[in-house]
């Protein structure tokens, strides 16, 4: 149900990383930044929304990062990174001008074909909005170009108003006609006048017809399970609910074995997978 990457092979970009230069760095939240990068020389093949890169911080190591933005030229990429370990902290701190190196694109993409002329729900939890952002851009492009009908709902849950990633984008999307954008937070500050609660609570008021809806969900696994359960309960078919899975990645090319989730190699059969496939696997403890 997911779209398999058309790229492959073995040349530079698959195993050997390709240098990229940080051209801009935007602080998203206190521990999260978005790096806009462009190739120093040759570019990796074009990323599709949902695919990821292995991002290398010189001398530190490499981590998987979904593309949070894909330049129209196919060369510029955005990666949003949260400083949680040595490598992610080094990438997070990369100032403009810093060179990093990328491999990819790896993994499956959000399957836009399954959303054509359907109501679409994009459900994001925290930094989970990052891999969904290029998808929202593609959905908005398709709708404004008349390539797809259906309503678009973007539902975002964040820890606090200050930890809402891509706040400017969210603001901009909500101004688009035919687009329903809702944000909820766990911990409102004194000046927050928006909703408080879990992101699934936003489904109650999102405009969609369950029988003709496709949903794209990314966030902590607990949140994705809850959202997928809720969507199914409301009548959205499980094979129309796509989630983005997270497991350890070392190679990205299906050879190292770290990212297994039962029958899936998440770097190859994911990260995007239909909930009809992923859901049953997520019911097993420590699979």
């Amino acid at each position: 149900m997911s779209v398999r990457s058309a790229t492959g092979g073995s040349g530079p970009g698959a195993t050997v990383p390709v240098p990229y230069r940080v051209v801009r760095r935007t602080r998203q939240t206190p521990d999260t930044a978005t790096l806009v990068v462009e190739p120093v020389d040759r570019a990796l093949p074009r990323f599709a929304p949902g695919q990821f890169a292995m991002a290398y911080a010189f001398g530190r190591g490499e981590i998987p990062l979904s593309a949070s933005g894909i330049g129209e030229d196919g060369r510029t990429l955005e990666h949003t990174v949260r400083a949680v370990g040595a490598v992610s902290a080094a990438l997070h701190d990369s100032a403009p001008g810093t060179q990093i190196a990328l491999r990819g694109p790896f993994g499956t993409a959000w399957d836009l074909a399954r959303a054509r002329d359907r109501d679409v729900l994009v459900v994001a939890g925290g930094i989970g909005l990052a891999p969904l952002r290029p998808l929202v851009h593609a959905l908005l492009r398709d709708r404004s170009a008349g390539r797809s009908g259906g309503r678009l709902g973007v539902l975002v849950g964040a820890r606090s108003p200050g930890e809402l990633p891509f706040a400017d984008d969210v603001e901009e999307w909500s101004a688009r006609p035919g687009t329903h954008v809702a944000v909820t937070v766990d911990r409102p500050g004194p000046r927050w006048t928006g909703e408080v609660g879990v992101v699934t609570a936003l489904l109650e008021r999102a405009p969609f017809t369950p029988g003709r809806t496709a949903a794209f969900v990314c966030g902590p696994e607990v949140m994705m399970r809850a959202a997928a359960r809720d969507l199914a309960h409301r009548g959205v078919a499980e094979d129309r609910v796509q989630v983005s899975l997270e497991r350890t990645m070392h190679c990205g090319t299906g050879h190292c074995g770290h990212c297994q989730l039962g029958p899936l190699l998440v770097c190859r059969d994911g990260p995007v997978a239909g909930y009809d496939r992923a859901g049953p696997l997520l019911t097993y403890r420590e699979l």
Partner: peptide, 27 residues
């Protein structure tokens, strides 16, 4: 539903993972 939501929020899922290198750091 509210109980489930409350439990989910009790987990503070969007918080930095335990053992994060720089929990709550401000660059």
């Amino acid at each position: 539903r509210r109980l489930e939501a409350t439990r989910a929020r009790l987990l503070d899922l969007y918080a930095p993972p335990p053992g994060a290198a720089h929990p709550g750091r401000v660059p």
